[in-house]
Amino acid sequence: MRVALFITCVNDTLFPGTGRAVVTLLRRLGCEVDFPRAQTCCGQMHVNTGYPREGTRLARHFADVFAGYDAVVTPSGSCAAMVREQYPRLARTAAAAGRPASSGTARDAGGRAAGRTAPPSFAEEVAALVPKVHDLSEFLVDVLGVTDVGACFPHRVTYHPTCHSLRGLRLGDRPTRLLEQVRGLELVPLPGAEECCGFGGTFAVKNPAVSAAMCADKAHNVMATGAEVLCAADNSCLMHIGGALGRQRAGIRVMHLAEILAATESGETAAAPAGPAARTRTAPATRPLSAPAARTLAAPGGATPAGPAAGTPPEPGPAAHGRTGEER
């Protein structure tokens, strides 16, 4: 299956390790991964902060870039929810306003006025696009039909089901089903898991006091689990909680779901632990696996995904590159 990776502007700029982990993981599961170079941002920050004009322009660009792929996979529940929930609204508004809101407004309008063959409208593009855009865990569980992705991560992990994954995309237990199948991983429940961490995009700086109060409670709950790693399907929330954990020297690192799922017994994946907590991290990310655990892993299990990657050792390629956290 040919899959387009929508990395998201935040991951592209700040958490490239997550993107490399997604690439490693999807290839291991037999997908052909493409990264459309023209992609930039889904427009969520602009729309949610009250700038729908700019946001719609970015959304139209997104729709153009990703038209024609079988599936678009993104390691961000929030950005996937943006496309699914808000793009249809933006398209309706744009249609009601009766003019295309793309960057080439004048050109497009001129073209249409001149009676040339009309390109698909934004609304049509959105209608075709929305069913194809998946958050990573949705894609793995619903489209590929796997929950055991052959990962190994022998650590104690707690999972924060971010708001847009939980109430926007309704991911349900998909992420935890994936985590439960990871060898050696001990998943501990997070108290008050469903409560917002207080990030909320620009909310974090527009209402810093409330945001910090919410994050303090979230960080407190994370610490109460005794976990070593906090996992989520969104790096923006992890950046927020991880930023607070780091500031408090909590000694808990944050990792995107993709980074854990990409990890195998042969070593840490492409992704070095991302996020602010990495700054205070001193312990190595991975303990060496005990021999029996390694043997279990080597045996081809029923759930081992089919495809070219199956049976062959995971590609070491991306793992060779920059562990951003350690270079400092």
């Binding site: 991951n11 490399r20 930023g243 390629g317 920059g322 400092r328």
Partner: peptide
């Protein structure tokens, strides 16, 4: 932001530059 939270490390290389340099890894 930084009153109560650390900011993440900025990576030396963005994802798109990594993709270009390594031809998608």
């Amino acid at each position: 932001w930084t009153d109560t939270r650390d900011i993440p490390d900025i990576p030396a290389e963005s994802f798109r530059d990594w993709w270009d340099r390594t031809d998608g890894g």
